[in-house]
Design a protein around this nucleic acid. Sequence first.
RNA 1: GAAGUUUGACAGACAAUCGCUGGCAGCGCACCCGCGCUGCGAGAGGAAAGUCCGGGCUCCAUAGGGCAGGAUGCUGGAUAACGUCCAGUCAGCGCGAGUUGAAGGAUAGUGCCACAGAAAUGGACCGCCGAUGGCGAGACUUAUGUCUAUCGCACAGGCAAGGGUGGAACCGUGGUGUAAGAGACCACGAGGAAAUAUUGGUGACAUAUUUCCUGGUAAACCCCAUCUGGAGCAAGACCUAAUGGAACGCAUCAACCCUUGCCCGGGGGCGUUCGGGUUGGUCGCUUGAGCCGUUCAGUAAUGGAUGGCCUAGAUAGAUGAUUGUCGCUUCAAUGGUGGGAGGGUAGUUCCCGUUAUACCACUGGAAGUACAGAACCCGGCUUACGGCAAACUUCUCUA
Length: 115
Amino acid sequence: MQRGLRLTNRRDFQVLYRWGKSAANSQFVVYYRRNANTERVRLGISASKKLGNAVVRNRLRRRIKEIVRHHVERVKPHHDLIIIVRKPATIQDYGQMEKSILHVLRRAGLLTARG
RNA sequence: GAAGUUUGACAGACAAUCGCUGGCAGCGCACCCGCGCUGCGAGAGGAAAGUCCGGGCUCCAUAGGGCAGGAUGCUGGAUAACGUCCAGUCAGCGCGAGUUGAAGGAUAGUGCCACAGAAAUGGACCGCCGAUGGCGAGACUUAUGUCUAUCGCACAGGCAAGGGUGGAACCGUGGUGUAAGAGACCACGAGGAAAUAUUGGUGACAUAUUUCCUGGUAAACCCCAUCUGGAGCAAGACCUAAUGGAACGCAUCAACCCUUGCCCGGGGGCGUUCGGGUUGGUCGCUUGAGCCGUUCAGUAAUGGAUGGCCUAGAUAGAUGAUUGUCGCUUCAAUGGUGGGAGGGUAGUUCCCGUUAUACCACUGGAAGUACAGAACCCGGCUUACGGCAAACUUCUCUA
């Protein structure tokens, strides 16, 4: 994932948690906020230590990055977002996780309507 | 073949597509800092983990010496260093290959040893004796006196052998001895200490002799010897926007605001410079007690010589995702084709099978394919974990 698509600053995270809106399903929570300075979208991922060891958390992060990267054209531009992983997501395979993430993004109203 | 012991190497493979982070080269943009594109090549571990020791490195502290505190604790060696490693000694465990050890001092001193028991190193419950002294009987005597011989009491006193308790009872067994007894003495034996040796060994220690001693506990205080300043890469160095501070200069010396109700005085605005912190960034940052060969020294840990190699560097944190093919393991919840009367087992009286059905081969299917993610860098330790190989040990079977 390119650097421009990443949320890298601690302050950005705090702003998003405080002022952003949220949506959720049983596997993921997404915080999002419109940001005019963001060219397309910026993504941050939060995977707590409760989910498992470092290997498990890394695998989750990488899969989520991959999924968002594949669907970045469909996400509404000029938004910052954070995806928080919940425990049930750890047992999902790639296909289930892709559906689940698209579902939560649609719920948040971040997906553009597609023809 | 079964059960073990030790050591070693490995940590699924390949391809396609789409990505991520550094490096090098080229091209383009840009005054500069840099940014983008293309190509080439690189990109997690044996434990990267726990953060338990040791060191490098960095900053702070520091005349020199001592005390306190902390750590370590058989011997010799290795090492930058260590609480690590190697080789030994001694002790424990194991039939054995081997393995385990916080393994200095109990003869410096103090404390403690639950319950039980009389008593846990200062003691007498039962018990034994009562020699000596006492009292009584008794005997003798002229004697209200005496105690040569005799008997009794168990009052003073002596003893700790035997009993019972306990993890442990004053070293054990036998004798001498005595009123009864006791390492009080003797013989043999157990353990410890010291000294000695034309003894062996660098040494721990072993062997022998002599003398002395005899509960345990130092993971109780303590004594002895050795080592030891503190904090850590979020260390630390440098650059830096906005804001605020200080100094200097300029402007204003009108009004307004603040400074004590009034007066005087001061401040407010602009610019330059300075040092400190925040924020963001760069360095530290990966060439190192480095890795792989060969060879020499050494039992070994390891060290020397020599040839070759460069092998991650992220920072909300890269090293991946998906698909396909193959490998390995398992399958009374596995199908087809072929072989098949035996197979499982080293072996049996045991189990499966001789019916398409066990079992074998080929080809499919399903499930599974460990533990675990660098964060300044090394040396260890500990913990987690998958199958594999070699050497060795014990037992068993066949010949």
